[in-house]
Amino acid sequence: MPAQSISIRRVERFDIPEGRTPILKNDLTVGAIENTGQTLTVEGVIFKRYVGKYNQTFQEDIWVFDPLSDDLLEINQYQKAFEFNIFYSVDKRILFSDTTTPITKKFLHNLKGMAGVEVDYSALRLDFLRISDMMPQTRGVRFNSDDQGVNSKSFSGDEVDSNNEASEALENDHATQIVGNLDILGLSRTIMLTQSGTLLVYTPLNDLNNREYPMLEFALATLRTIRILD
């Protein structure tokens, strides 16, 4: 089973009109958000559920098959449509989006400018040094670098936090990504956290397969484990 991810945001306000709200950019429709009116309770936390849609434009040369001409055509731009759930807790002031963080960022940025929408959000700020200390095993650290010609460095290994550069990055709050093991919901899981708001789990969530939204439940449990939420 491939790794699963979810994007997380702190939210002070998330007022969305009933029904479907188109999202426009330069007078073109790039997506929409649907207020489903549905609420669900996960581990005592009440979430409102929305459905987001976003069309991402990619600038790259690819070949596609054209059935009309029965031939391959080269194109340098194409769109990919993403549809995803958004879960928002008024009480915890937290939002989970089950798509990638780059899509979530673009979606929320464009949503914020729509008439009738009131959205105020920010990225989580995580204390990676404290989280690393909680991990029986820290297996990866990525951080920004001032070295000539190098924007970032990444270290991986069984005890990567014992490396001087990785340790200094954690201590100086320069780390942008951490990978390690944590006991979450009674099992050891290998996870990745980023300062941009991504939680990724490499360990299959077989014990949660009977849940309607297993990644949401896992994300909530993870934030409680690292003491971001009570």
Rank of each mutant, 00 (worst) to 15 (best):
L68N: 15
T190A: 01
L205K: 06
T198N: 12
D127I: 04
M1P: 00
E34R: 03
F128H: 06
D91L: 05
G197F: 04
R13M: 05
R130C: 08
G19H: 06
A3W: 00
Q77N: 10
V45F: 04
L68D: 15
F87D: 10
F218E: 06
P67L: 10
E74T: 13
T203N: 09
D61R: 02
Q59P: 00
P67S: 00
I33H: 06
V160L: 02
V119R: 03
V51K: 10
D71G: 06
I228G: 06
R224G: 01
E74P: 03
G37I: 14
N210Q: 11
I226V: 15
L73E: 09
R9L: 15
P17C: 00
F65P: 06
P67H: 04
N35P: 03
K80V: 14
T21V: 09
H174P: 03
M192C: 08
G180E: 11
T198A: 13
Y121C: 01
F58G: 04
H109N: 07
E217D: 04
F107W: 10
I86Y: 07
E171Q: 11
I75L: 09
N26I: 04
I46Y: 13
G31K: 10
M215S: 05
N76E: 09
T203K: 08
P136D: 11
G186C: 13
L95N: 02
T57C: 14
I131Q: 08
A221T: 09
R211F: 02
E83C: 07
S188H: 09
D91W: 03
F47D: 05
F87W: 15
R20V: 13
R13N: 04
V141Y: 01
R227F: 11
T101S: 10
P136V: 03
L108P: 01
E118V: 02
N144E: 13
P22C: 10
F14D: 08
E34I: 11
R49F: 10
G180D: 08
A219R: 08
D91I: 01
A3R: 09
V11R: 04
I75Q: 09
V117F: 03
N85A: 07
N151L: 13
T190E: 14
F47N: 06
L182I: 01
A32S: 14
S196D: 15
V45C: 06
S89N: 10
E165R: 08
N206M: 02
V160T: 10
D207L: 11
F58W: 03
Q56M: 04
R211L: 12
Y213G: 00
I191H: 13
Q148R: 02
I103G: 04
D66H: 08
E171I: 08
K105A: 05
F82K: 12
E83Q: 15
R211P: 04
N151Q: 11
S7T: 14
R189N: 15
L95P: 05
L24M: 14
R139N: 09
K25A: 08
L185H: 02
V42F: 12
